Amino acid sequence: MLNDDLQGKTVIITGANSGIGFEAAKVLAEKGAHVIMAARNMEKGQTAINAILIENDNAKVELMQLDLADLNSVRAFANAFTSRFNQLDLMINNAGVMIPPYGKTKDGFELQFGSNHLGHFALTGLLLPLLKDSTGSRVVTLSSIAHRGALIDFNNLDGSKGYKAMKFYGQSKLANLLFAKELDNRFKLHGIKTISIACHPGISNTNLFKMGKSETPGYMKRIMNIFFQPAQMGVLPTLYAATEESLQGGEYVGPDGRGNRKGNPAIETPAPGVYNETTMKKLWEVSEDLTGVIYHLN
């Protein structure tokens, strides 16, 4: 059953100023959680906080700056958080960038792989001590149906040997899924009670569908309103993964409708052969090497 009482729980949501992250922040704050809304753009983040407080003036929500495309920002966020909080009950790795023109992060990673996967990998690792010390804690990482048919091209992670935006988006979302599963495997191997769960929103009408740095064009929004489910529905798998008490860790949650594009949350089976142990182990090692963040699980 879903846990409706989150009083005393501390939650981090990346990319919480819009879309799925914003909807999750709103609901979890309604349930009594203290929600840290991590956002790159502080102005947009404050607008999101104000919108939540208008509906619920008792909401415990606050804004902290985080740019997942900059490992210095990731470290600064982790240091600021750990200096103020002694627990982390729920971490939702939600933020993402989708099909931008070719670009790189501050550290020279391809933008989608660097932001969607490596930034979250580093952040989760840096906050691991707090997660381990918080009873009943969990990590929820958002993947996508775009993981289907995707591959991790270890010989071209930075896109220097060719770049196709959708291919690299699929790679980043596959990395999210493999990270979530491997993290849970390692938690269980080392007797750590924290659990890791992956989820995806189906195809939701959010600002993830941006053309470069601009907002989604009006004509695209009209098309999306017809074919995609609203963010209020797209957030349900995230909320299920975050609060369903029967989950044991390692699950993948998505909409139950046709093609898993729309619907109510349900435990889903990823595409066949996705959980390749060799790929998962190599991705983990490469991620530690690229970010310099080592997971101390002992």
Rank of each mutant, 00 (worst) to 15 (best):
M1H: 13
I54M: 07
S83P: 09
S115Q: 09
T194P: 04
G45C: 02
A266P: 07
Y169P: 09
Q232W: 07
N86Y: 07
H34M: 00
G96Y: 07
P270M: 01
Y240L: 00
L90R: 08
N176W: 11
P272C: 00
D4M: 14
K173V: 04
K173Q: 08
G114L: 04
S83Q: 15
E30F: 01
F85S: 00
A48P: 13
E277D: 15
I99T: 15
Q7S: 15
V74L: 07
A266D: 10
Y163N: 08
Y163G: 05
K161F: 12
F168S: 00
Y295L: 09
K161A: 14
S18Q: 13
N58E: 14
L126D: 10
T82A: 04
A180T: 08
I197Q: 04
L189P: 03
A242I: 10
M42Y: 03
Q232A: 06
M37Y: 07
G191A: 03
P272S: 10
I54N: 11
F187Q: 00
T141H: 08
A122D: 08
Q248E: 15
D184V: 02
L283P: 11
T141K: 03
E288T: 09
N276V: 01
K106R: 13
Q65S: 06
G159N: 11
N79K: 15
H34Q: 10
K104F: 04
S137G: 11
L126E: 12
K188M: 02
Q229S: 06
I192Y: 10
E30H: 06
E288W: 12
Q229W: 11
S160M: 08
V293L: 05
R40Y: 08
K167W: 12
A33Y: 12
E244Q: 11
A271P: 09
N207R: 11
D5L: 01
G103L: 00
I226K: 13
L68M: 10
P272N: 08
N72G: 07
N3I: 03
F121L: 03
N58I: 00
G162N: 11
I13T: 07
T243M: 09
H296P: 02
G257E: 13
P255S: 01
G21I: 03
A146P: 12
K31F: 13
